[in-house]
Design a protein around this nucleic acid. Structure first.
Lengths: 223, 223, 223, 223
DNA sequence: GATGAATGAGTGTTCATTCAT
DNA sequence: GATGAATGAACACTCATTCAT
């Protein structure tokens, strides 16, 4: 169950998704098999190109069983997508802020390195579902908007707070906050892309150190 | 017609695309109308969700006419996608390097600002087709690979040359070249994302100056 | 249980229906609930358009429970339809004749008024089931035939006896018996239709008097 | 095409039916084959119990062809049903009134015999479609209402006019008009039922004479 | 006896593709 | 070349029926 006080973070589209979501832990064996098969196929071939009969075959259930658990094919998509919104949005709001804003005695370098590592892990662990969300967001404006409003905007606000603090502490140069925030996110985004495009060359730990070095040189006050 | 010496840049998948590509200039009125309708629909709703009958209606031709010009629906997609590979890859190799490498007397700031503005324009002008390519790349690994090999890798090589030059000239700090290159691309990528997610807040010219400022602070030698 | 001597009235199709019929009084609570739900739904939406899951929900039993009591959905229909054949055919044969033929001292007007009122009541009380039977009779010729042979023909014979008696008594004109019988039934049938089509205008008691007036003027000897 | 001045006879439900109705004469060979197959199957087994694949097989077309001509299965039903509303309603309004009201010098007996014969022929010629309409009217209240409003009510008004005229001319007894009208319609309705239930015994011409005899005895003034 | 999850054949409908005109 | 009617395989979804609990 999603704690009540966090639910108002999600607008009605997501709300709807969540209603059709039985907490994934409480799913039956068959439901899990169906979801898992759907994740694989949707990520591989896209939502439209994956037929329910294919999903059924891969999940080793009868086609009708899918519809016993998910009213429509689209509900199956939502059941896949919704938990991601929670996973991504809530821990970022609930746990990382404490580390980032609260533990302000830590150096900016350490904070960013930890943040990057944390977010990258989240991405890697959930890549197939993220892929599905990004695919569908291209096509369904509601999903795109939910993505922007509930994740991107929240993340940006949080980032902005971090930047402002460090700037007030005299640690960062006097720059437009949004420009600095954008630089931080761009670094993360760019890395995800590079790591995916040229996987063989990546060593996450060194990569993060290099990125943070450049980034902080860019935004920190020179002594 | 694509000059022979560039064709070997493309691997067999792209080769195939190109074979089914009558240079877009030599197309008849109807063919152009079909392609244009397809671009709009594919970008808006995705390839699978756009039916040939819809394309025909939007293009104001008979459904059969589509198949007279494009053997299958997939060929229509290829005919849309392939020219993009050329547009994107070739001018980047042929024109911008001259400005970037050749005009090395220009400040790095100017070079990067010009480069960013130039690339952003390319993106904006071709956004619907780029969207289609990115969508399809998620699903067809060959396209993704072609994208990486022919565009991303080429671009990175070029960027690497620029970085190396400036580093040898003592203008940039002694950092791993790929890290610097990555920082440059991340900045561009991140901006494209931000401009799309929060469009109302963007003013391209100032944004570019801010980005280049941070970026160069991050990679330039401090005096 | 249906008394043996009446069972031979019904041909094999009906026989079959009856075999699957546990006398409605000896049914369990659940069986009754299922039957009742089915009557309502079949009458409202037709047999094919009513799903067993709907019936189960309306009856507040599990879907499986339906099939424990009625081997197939069609058996459920038969269990609804069969008792009607008995209800309609038997009391008409057993009770009303005594009044019509036996109490021959009564005026034809009184007899007909009583008969009409009695039959209309039967119709009104059983309308949902009658509707179902008529619907199914359109589709299954066996049911239509059973309807005609066991109800219509029996009723016509009875009506014929009444007409013949009154004719022999000099009360009715010398007309073909079947024509008079038909006139009587037509009057009833027509009323049922009119009362259904224009319900607001009907007052049963006056209507019956008007009808019997016209009918008897048509068939009685003028003094 | 339906003449404009008659279209306002039909309420919006029928209007809708008519819009989806390409005048049956202007249909292609295939459309006619589909409609014909559908009439047979719907009349035989009912709308729900007839599958589109069955219709296609009987019509000897591909299943897809049905949907090229009739957007949904229900449209196919409407295309069958709508022309019946016209056939039944319009000629009764346009042609028979002239004979019934205008030719008032004719005896009531002749008028009724002609009317009965005319309506019975209409029924016999269109029986399968009428059966379909009656079946569907049980289930779809809109059809039932359209039937009552556009056919039953119109017919009753017309009948009422005829009765009133003859009554004013002193030919009919002073009875409630609606009662006389109902007697006339009941006679027709009852005959249709009897002729269907006991077909072997019917000779239409004598039957009509018998019915009109009884009916007129019932409603005419005795001299 | 009662349940309801599971089944898979069957449904109405869509769609890329063909081909006679 | 251009058309659009025709096709039938494939699709998402429904349903009566079964059966382990």
């Amino acid at each position: 169950m999603i704690p009540i006080e966090n639910r108002n973070v999600f607008d009605s589209t997501i709300e709807e998704m969540l209603n059709s979501l039985k907490s994934e832990q409480k799913m039956t064996e068959k439901q899990r098999r169906i979801l898992q098969a759907a994740v694989q196929l949707f990520a591989e071939k896209g939502f439209h190109a994956s037929s329910t009969s294919e999903i059924a075959k891969k999940a080793e259930v009868a086609e009708g069983t899918i519809f016993r658990h998910f009213k429509t094919k689209k509900d199956l998509l939502y059941a896949l997508v919704a938990p991601m919104f929670i996973k991504f949005a809530t821990p970022m709001i609930l746990k990382d802020p404490k580390r980032i804003i609260g533990e302000s005695e830590k150096s900016a370098a350490l904070v960013l390195e930890e943040l990057f590592a944390n977010r990258f892990q989240l991405f890697n662990e959930n890549w197939p579902r993220i892929k599905i969300i990004l695919q569908e967001a291209q096509i369904h404006p509601e999903i795109m908007e939910a993505l922007i409003e509930n994740i991107a905007r929240q993340a940006r606000i949080l980032g902005g707070q971090f930047v402002q603090e460090r700037m007030q502490a005299g640690e960062f140069r006097e720059l437009p906050i949004h420009a600095v925030t954008r630089a931080i996110f761009s670094t993360m985004l760019g890395y995800l892309f590079f790591a995916h495009a040229f996987p063989e060359e990546s060593d996450e730990k060194t990569d993060i150190q290099e990125m943070v070095d450049i980034l902080l040189h860019g935004i920190k006050k020179t002594v």
